[in-house]
């Protein structure tokens, strides 16, 4: 069945709401407005205002309330409009949701699902465009997901809600209009990375909104006779390093593509894992393509220059391969 990423997210939430009365959706403009990205269109009419709960602009307050509601026996899906706004709620996420299980000696789990849009590419400038997934991936106690395909958009929410611990789901804003086939077997785990394209010459490791760019780059490289393997991390914490290592043992070369800024990026973590686990398998230094170290600019050509692009990925691969 053909559908958009947005529709896949919508169906996943619809299914969860219909199946479990403990599940409810809360966030800014999720109800009357239908969701900032229209992921909850029609939900208010169908499930009512108790379960489709428009919140005031109080990220700290309603994310914290989601934690309390989860502790109180519900299964909240809390939508934060963008990762930039989630910084207003960071205290509750880091100091409470992620820490509570441990600092209570294992007495309280927080079964909270936090969804938020991330990423650049729509000329929304420096307060609506950032990729801070790695900040969250740094924190013990939470699971971080980055669905990059229609199937993952459809499949990741169910197991996220079943997870007894907090799960943060990053939906790249550029993906909502992505259209594709929803496979019959869309159900998935939230633990492993996926090989999106097999290859033998180089491993391209990426996640989220960069996956379409990396697949396009792999297509171009194939035309040049370079067989790139594409790994979609899917789960940013805990990282599935085994899938990465298995690929490296085959290709012996890697380029990591990450829309986060280069310094302290998730790419840096992946590269460190490769060096730790695959050093003697490597035939070339590991390379990365990240965002330039600048707040994302408004002007289109400047924004494009700041972000990983197909051409930059292809160039990085050629350099690693010495071509």
């Amino acid at each position: 069945m053909k559908m958009t990423y947005r529709e896949a997210i919508r169906q996943a939430m619809h299914e969860a709401l219909a199946a479990d009365p403990r599940v409810f959706l809360m966030g800014e403009d999720v109800g009357k407005y239908g969701g900032t990205y229209a992921c909850s269109k029609g939900f208010l009419e169908e499930f009512g205002p108790e379960r489709i709960r428009d919140t005031p602009l109080s990220e700290l307050g309603f994310v914290g309330a989601g934690i309390g509601a989860a502790l109180g026996g519900l299964r909240p899906i809390v939508e934060v409009m963008t990762v930039n706004f989630s910084l207003l709620a960071l205290d509750q996420i880091v100091n409470t949701a992620a820490a509570l299980r441990h600092m209570s000696g294992g007495q309280f789990s927080v079964p909270l699902v936090l969804r938020m849009a991330t990423g650049a590419g729509r000329q929304l400038a420096a307060q609506h465009s950032h990729s801070l997934e790695n900040w969250y991936a740094h924190i013990p106690g939470i699971r971080v997901l980055a669905p990059a395909t229609i199937a993952d958009a459809r499949g990741m929410l169910g197991p996220a809600l079943a997870d007894p611990d907090p799960v943060v789901i990053f939906e790249h804003a550029q993906l909502y209009n992505l259209e594709g086939e929803l496979p019959d077997d869309w159900r998935c785990d939230i633990a492993t990375a996926a090989v999106r394209r097999e290859g033998t010459d180089v491993s391209l490791i990426t996640y989220g909104g960069s996956l379409p760019k990396v697949l396009a780059a792999a297509g171009q490289l194939a035309a040049e006779g370079i067989a790139a393997e594409v790994i979609d991390l899917r789960v940013l914490r805990p990282l599935d390093t085994e899938t990465i290592a298995a690929s490296l043992r085959k290709t012996h070369k890697a380029v990591v593509v990450d829309e986060g800024w280069r310094s302290g990026s998730l790419a840096a973590e992946v590269m460190a894992c490769i060096v730790e686990q695959c050093f003697f398998d490597l035939d070339a230094p590991v390379a990365r393509v990240c965002s330039e170290e600048v707040p994302i600019p408004y002007a289109k050509h400047m924004e494009e220059a700041a972000l990983p692009q197909v051409s930059k990925i292809v160039a990085a691969v050629r350099q690693v391969l010495g071509k």
């Binding site: 108790e50 307050g61 914290g64 309330a65 109180g72 600092m103």
Partner: peptide
Amino acid sequence: FYGGNAIVGGGLPLAAGFGLADKLQ
């Protein structure tokens, strides 16, 4: 007894959430 919160004000949103859970249930 849900803590024991050492972020000043950190327990307040949590309490609203407990209230929400009790109200909805």
